[in-house]
């Protein structure tokens, strides 16, 4: 193990000093997962609180309220101590309905989110990684699904399926099938870019199997994109289902925020001024969308660190600019006072 270099001698093989980042914190080493977590901002916190609160309401609420279907003779009464959100035309408790409907909508959103993300990940990532024929075929398939107009197809399919077999899963499947294609296109583009990076080539050269290259080397670098698409798919599914249910094509055996609005519409809640009947479900839908969007903005910052730097640097940049202006002003003052030529010197530059 002798080093033949004459002068450098024993020192030649010493290590280079660790990079300056080394001693910063002696704590446990941060894993790769850590960098996938967004930084906490007020907006992200608000989004998480909204989502958490609504989810909790959907999970626990149904156990605390009475039977949402129970018909009473106190139809269409406003909020009171007994019924905090009033009653419907047929005397049903709006709060109880709301709790069950929130649970139903979240269920649909979650199922569709998982299904659509799985479909887009498979068609987007696997196709792009394999390239050639498989990529062409998968691309064609997602392009076809992309140009199919989503809502009309959903209406047609939902209308075609007989009402009794039009359950929660059927609706979820229909929504998932019409919403994965755009995400698959994005994932394909991202995969193509990651696939051409040297570390993927290095993994292939060192003999990794294709599925390991995909799941261990490529997938982690796509996770923020996938997470963002999942969140987006959930929003789209909840809104889509609400739209379907509102026009009467929703799941037959479950109650969602959309079906609530459908019954409110049929019960002439609006002309009768029964705001407690249609405002709560509408508000919940809006808040779910808002919360998930806020979470999504934070995920965007991971995908595109420039957004984050923008926020971080804006303040610093302002301070630097102000300090520099002061310096320039001071310099101008000192330059003008003793030396009357200074303004003239600047003249020819105009």
């Amino acid at each position: 193990m002798t080093n033949p270099k004459p002068v450098s001698g024993p020192q030649a093989d010493t290590a280079e000093p660790p990079a300056e980042t080394a001693p910063r914190d002696g704590g446990p080493v941060r894993s790769g997962w850590r960098m996938l977590l967004p930084t906490m901002t007020p907006w992200l916190a608000l989004g998480l609180v909204l989502i958490g609160g609504i989810t909790l309401f959907g999970l626990i609420g149904p156990h605390l309220v009475g039977d949402p279907g129970q018909i009473r003779d106190q139809g269409l009464t406003g909020p009171s101590a007994e019924f905090p959100l009033g009653t419907t035309q047929t005397g049903q408790d709006v709060l109880a309905q709301l709790a069950h409907a929130t649970r139903g909508s979240l269920q649909i959103g979650f199922i569709v989110g998982v299904l659509a993300t799985a479909l887009s990940a498979f068609f987007g990532i696997y196709g792009a990684y394999r390239g050639r024929f498989i990529d062409e075929a998968f691309s064609l398939l997602s392009n076809v699904f992309l140009v199919i107009p989503g809502l009309p197809l959903v209406i047609v399919i939902s209308g075609f399926v007989p009402r009794e077999s039009r359950g929660l899963w059927t609706i979820a499947l229909v929504l998932a099938l019409t919403s994965w294609a755009a995400s698959a296109r994005v994932l394909r583009a991202q995969t193509l870019s990651v696939r051409n990076r040297d570390y993927v080539a290095a993994a292939q050269v060192s003999g990794e199997r294709p599925w390991r290259v995909i799941t261990v080397e490529i997938l982690p670098n796509l996770l923020p994109v996938i997470a963002s698409q999942f969140v987006f798919a959930v929003i789209a599914a909840i809104l889509g289902e609400a739209g379907l249910a509102f026009i009467g094509l929703g799941a037959s055996n479950s109650s969602t925020l959309g079906t609530m609005l459908f019954y409110a519409q049929n019960g002439f809640a609006l002309p009768l001024g029964a705001w407690w009947w249609f405002v709560p479900p509408g508000l919940i839908i809006a808040l779910i969308g808002m919360g998930l969007s806020l979470v999504n903005f934070s995920i965007d910052e991971i995908i595109n660190p420039k957004l984050k730097n923008l926020r971080l640097h804006r303040k610093r940049a302002r301070r630097a600019a102000r300090l520099e202006r002061e310096l320039a002003r001071a310099s101008r003052r000192s330059g003008q006072a003793p030396d009357t030529d200074a303004p003239a010197a600047e003249e020819p530059t105009r």
Binding site: V29, S31, G32, M35, R197, D198, Y199, A201, A202, A203, V205, S206, G207, V216, E217, P220, N221
Partner: peptide, 21 residues
């Protein structure tokens, strides 16, 4: 073959996966 023939890539900033240790 992959055991015997190995490669060092040009760009050390691209040839290591940022996600892994």
């Amino acid at each position: 073959y992959r055991r015997e023939v190995q490669m060092v890539f040009q760009d050390p900033f691209a040839s290591l996966n940022p996600f892994h240790s």
